[in-house]
Design a binder for these strands. Sequence first.
DNA 1: CTGATTGCAAAAATTTTGCAAGCCT
DNA 2: AGGCTTGCAAAATTTTTGCAATCAG
Lengths: 145, 145
Amino acid sequence: MTSDLVNRLRKAGYKITPPRLAVLEVIQRESEHLNPNEILVQAQRIHPQTGRATVYRTLELLTTLGMVRPIYVGDSGPTYIRAEGGHHHLVCSGCGRVIDFDECVVESMERELEERFGFCIQSHLLEFYGICACCREASRVTKEG
Amino acid sequence: MTSDLVNRLRKAGYKITPPRLAVLEVIQRESEHLNPNEILVQAQRIHPQTGRATVYRTLELLTTLGMVRPIYVGDSGPTYIRAEGGHHHLVCSGCGRVIDFDECVVESMERELEERFGFCIQSHLLEFYGICACCREASRVTKEG
DNA sequence: CTGATTGCAAAAATTTTGCAAGCCT
DNA sequence: AGGCTTGCAAAATTTTTGCAATCAG
């Protein structure tokens, strides 16, 4: 729920403003990875006056607080995802397609890393890169067809 | 070895030019994650005439070929790493420090994902985000005096 | 009230592009 | 020789900044 993130913002001593709420809601409800411009456009549907600079400032704030984080997924430019829990992607280098999957064995590593490095781990990102079936098929056709 | 990447470039039908060699060498020898500007500067030490545009063009080419890939590690802006094998980072949300670690249990997941999604997996990135001991200490001091 | 936050527009930084010249193969 | 590749500088895009006005608490 968004209210969870809102509370974290509030507890950290930041004011809850319409543009911040809008950005939070957009990031919360979109499973897709949105870039700053897309976030701006969607945030403006919620709070029309939202300015581009505010989106950047909010994203930076949320990133600092560890609530979202930027990643690349094939295409160009940064994209933001929620930082909670884990994100598991299968990214095709050929077409840029991104498949999400759930199973993840890395939780088992967290405890050990925390002890070894004195970290308090909050989330993780696991991405595999390769070529999807379609692209492999396409390149075969191209080269051998 | 760099020659490995050079061969892949050549096999893919691209010409082996001084700027491309320079960029490859920089990426190959630096364990750090370099941004385009840093890559330019270092490449120019090897081949002084190297232009900025060529660095961008080369990075795009290498990314398309799956030889490098851009990632974010806390600070702002993209950074490039070799796409081979795995990359394992422990990233502090507080200070941005990045610790590399070797152990990784995800290889065991690759086979299953390949079968399930028809992917041919070439590399992976596993990152844990959290707060390092120093930053936890610092915030405790700050808040509790 | 008061200071954090905003939106705007300008400034800065980053990335892309057009094109003639140059270099791999 | 032929065409991919380059470097340059300009153009486009993305991100940051300054500042007066506004708003949350």
